[in-house]
């Protein structure tokens, strides 16, 4: 199963939508980090990531989300999360406090 898919590279108002699915382990985390860095270089103003299809969220995955959220914020852009599965939400809360991320109700 592919670790994540990009639904819409550049939507309205420069927003990019990314859907993650399957096991979000360290390889997928690095793949996502590369993709988000590319988006920053392309001057993307907002990236919305849906974790709806994520069956497992690794600590490396959380690390990349934390780091890239900071990079987006530092560039004046925004990284938002949507559709967090309860277990992923609990894991995130344990490490970082889920309120750290900007949340959107839909992708």
């Amino acid at each position: 199963m592919k670790s994540f898919s990009i639904e819409n590279n550049r939507g309205r108002n420069g927003t990019c939508r990314i859907s993650l699915s399957g096991r979000f382990g360290d390889s997928a985390a690095m793949e996502l980090e590369d993709r988000l860095n590319e988006l920053l270089k392309e001057d993307t103003r907002e990236a919305r990531i849906s974790l709806k299809g994520v069956s497992f969220l690794s600590s490396e995955g959380i690390g990349v989300l934390l780091g890239m959220e900071h990079s987006f914020r530092a560039s004046g852009a925004r990284l938002s999360l949507a559709d967090l599965p309860p277990r992923a939400e609990a894991d995130m809360k344990l490490v970082a406090g889920v309120e750290y991320f900007n949340r959107v109700t839909e992708l």
Binding site: S58, E60, G63, G67, V95
Partner: peptide, 17 residues
């Protein structure tokens, strides 16, 4: 180095490594 960075970030809850 990259794996060390993301492991530190995700396990400690830090945004910069």
């Amino acid at each position: 180095s990259r794996k060390i960075s993301i492991s530190l970030s995700g396990n400690l809850g830090v945004e910069k490594v």
